[in-house]
Design a protein around this nucleic acid. Structure first.
Lengths: 284, 284
DNA sequence: TGCTGAGTGAAATTTTATTTCTTATTTTCA
DNA sequence: TGAAAATAAGAAATAAAATTTCACTCAGCA
């Protein structure tokens, strides 16, 4: 199936290369999509202080067949609206309902994590990792899962990666590292003393520190050279959201790995293929 | 925000209470939604061997303002179409593009896992876990992450859960278990010898066995009393999909936990709250 | 200063949605 | 059983919307 871009995506991409009146219309749609798709061309012209002709010209400029087509595309983008709310599990729900809620919450967490990620920080992090002699991942409790996951993934592409939840052991390792190494500290709240201490120690030794933690000031953020934020949105929804922080952390790790993979494509692919073959060999 | 039902949902709900010609139109839209939203009322009337009047009457019967409104609603339901394709990472992509691909692939994996899950098996699994004296989770390699995650989550709700990637240690533990205990074997391919062996051992001792593995016959599925499948779809897309299997496994674990939580709401909540308080206490 | 061309909205035109009207079919009940 | 009533249908008329045309404005430039 051909990939069809959503109407809002096209609008946002093109909004800067449009003539003034077309831009007015485009901006109005972006700001009020829900309203816009229920207006006529004339009505939208009035609302955006232009004319129906401007609306039609906008459609043509965007490469869309007509106003109806544009409305249909924008409508497609709006669909997610009813999923943007975290919903908690209730007593004795049907299995189907629980499955839907858990899935919707997880998808929402992923999207928020993407919204919140700072591309520049990601870029700096990837470059640091690409050149790193070794990578230490530290996380305690739930965050250890993400650290362990990162360890496995980096090892697959031939990086010297080590994960720790025991901070004493991690400190021992860090004691012998220095410039050119990287420590990734993972803490949902950002206030995990042990992880913060570890980053502090690393910084003293000139090791590059990356923090994966929630948005805002925290212990961990003080000691991180590079900060990658996970969605803090709804840990209030503790009971069903308890799983969200982990998903967000894992997703950040995935993004790091994939960006690294793309930037160093050939080597990475070779390592990934070699890893796979090794696992296949064990199976026979 | 009020929840607005998707056009296709309304159509499917009402299709049996419509007059014949309206039903013809409705059926045509349900079968060819992508085409239908680009047709005129007249065109749709012809395609469905009725008339434009029938189309309009259908809209009224559905309680929708007009034909445009119906098209917009249906368009909203079609949203997912452009995300249903796994796309591999390529050399030197932009960061934004990589992030989008990774996220889309992950979301797709989640959705496929939900599509594939068997509610009855899930139900049986949840009941077994609810009554279990102890839960052993076993997974090697990447699947260990899911096992570890499950261990943490079950422990949070006061279940005796143990995760292993070392099968010898797991065997030692299982040797002293029996009826009323549960072993969960996690293996993406289903052909991990060690995990299969462990389930076999468990079965001999009358322990309930749950397999989390890809769809189809496999070593693990032979020895599992209860089978929960993860999406097998696109491990072919190995290079970017390598992360998918883990996400799918984690999601299955999440669903197990949440269903358990809903079925035993009060206790579970108490345990979750107690766990949280304990963690908070450590932070001060 | 006057020419050029992109950009604009009003008005004309075309297309599409909706309503109305007539006919056909089925249902109801004396 | 058969006549009245109710329902359903499409063709044609009408209303509404989308789209095109056109004349005007104004910035940039020789």
């Amino acid at each position: 199936m051909a990939h069809v871009k959503g109407g809002l995506v096209i609008l946002k991409e093109m909004v800067n290369s449009l003539s003034p009146s077309e831009r007015k219309v485009a901006t109005y749609i972006i700001d009020h999509p829900q309203e816009a798709i229920h207006l006529t061309a004339l009505g939208l012209g009035e609302k955006s202080n232009t004319s129906s002709a401007a609306v039609i010209r906008l459609c043509k400029s965007l490469g869309v067949k007509g106003f109806q087509e544009l409305k249909i595309r924008v409508a497609g983008d709006l669909q997610t609206d009813d999923a943007t709310v975290y919903r908690d599990i209730e007593p004795n729900e049907t299995y189907k309902s629980i499955i839907d809620k858990v899935t919707a919450n997880t998808v929402q967490t992923l999207k928020e994590t993407v919204d919140i990620i700072d591309e520049n920080q990601l870029k700096v992090a990837v470059e640091a990792l690409a050149n790193a002699n070794s990578i230490v991942l530290a996380g305690v409790g739930a965050s250890y899962i993400a650290a362990k996951d990162g360890e496995q993934k980096f090892q697959r592409i031939d990086k010297n990666a080590y994960s720790f939840s025991d901070i004493h052991l991690a400190a021992t390792l860090i004691a012998n590292k220095g410039k050119g190494d990287v420590v990734i500290g993972i803490s949902f709240s950002g206030d995990t003393q042990e992880v913060a201490k570890l980053l502090q120690l690393a910084k003293q030794r000139d090791i590059t520190t990356i923090g994966i933690t929630k948005y805002g000031n925290s212990l961990v953020s003080q000691y991180a050279d590079i900060l990658l934020h996970t969605s803090a949105a709804k840990e209030a929804t503790f009971r069903s959201g308890a799983t969200s922080s982990r998903i967000a952390q894992l997703h950040v790790v995935d993004m790091l790995l994939m960006c690294l993979a793309s930037n160093h494509y050939e080597e990475t692919i070779q390592h990934l293929d070699a890893s796979r073959e090794a696992v296949m060999f064990l199976r026979d």
